[in-house]
């Protein structure tokens, strides 16, 4: 006859299998910190060197759609995005390997698929706004749609990701109201919040 420990072990195994087969738990906290650092650097470059200053009403170039450094700004955004995603993929793959899992498995595919829906919709909307010269809204909208994507992704990963998503959505919505602080909110959301979240996740799950 089985011992009590056997039953407890059975339950523990059932639980672990349910979690492993439905949630992608190799997200790296360190990647969050790095993404935050890239974002802060990017926001700083945009503000200081590319003169992206959405503050000031009416006469600001960004506000009027007369902003002349747009190609450089977009290039900068793409570079920051690629660095952040690249670091996240690399560190998550490493973490997955350490856990004896494949990074690109059913759960991570599902998570990425669910994230991509709000991201693609947001990307299209932001592109339309850029073409129409509504530059003032691109930073807040990127926060909002990124937050929605995280909220979606949280169903397939750590529950904590949901709160990260809600904070990003909140900052994005605030940014659409206080448009003059769009870049500041963006730097807080993608920069500071990522760093704080990354440290929290690192301390909680990776030690």
């Amino acid at each position: 006859m089985k011992e009590e420990q056997d039953y407890i072990r059975d339950i523990a195994e059932i639980r672990s299998m349910m979690e492993r087969s439905s949630k992608f738990l190799s997200l790296s906290g360190l990647a969050g910190i790095m993404a935050g650092v890239y974002a802060l650097a990017g926001a700083w470059v945009a503000h200081v060197y590319l003169g992206f200053k959405p503050d000031g009403v009416g006469d600001s170039a960004v506000y009027n759609g007369q902003y002349s450094n747009l190609p450089q700004l977009m290039l900068l955004a793409v570079v920051v995005l690629i660095l952040a995603i690249g670091t996240a993929v690399f560190l998550s793959a490493k973490k997955a390997q350490k856990r004896g899992e494949k990074a690109w498995n059913t759960t991570s595919k599902r998570m990425v698929a669910h994230m991509s829906v709000p991201l693609v919709a947001g990307g299209i909307l932001i592109s339309v706004f850029i073409v129409k010269g509504l530059l003032i809204l691109i930073a807040p909208l990127s926060l909002l749609f990124y937050g929605l994507a995280l909220y979606n992704a949280s169903k397939f990963s750590y529950e904590d990701v949901k709160f990260l998503g809600m904070i990003q959505m909140g900052l994005g919505l605030l940014g659409t109201w206080y448009t003059g602080y769009g870049l500041l909110f963006w730097a807080i959301g993608f920069g500071v919040v990522h760093i704080v979240y990354g440290i929290y996740m690192h301390l909680r799950y990776e030690r």
Partner: peptide
């Protein structure tokens, strides 16, 4: 253990 694992995984996934 394997059969229990299969059932656990299928309990939380529509299909695998």
């Amino acid at each position: 253990r394997v059969r229990l694992g299969i059932m656990s995984a299928l309990a939380v996934n529509d299909t695998l």
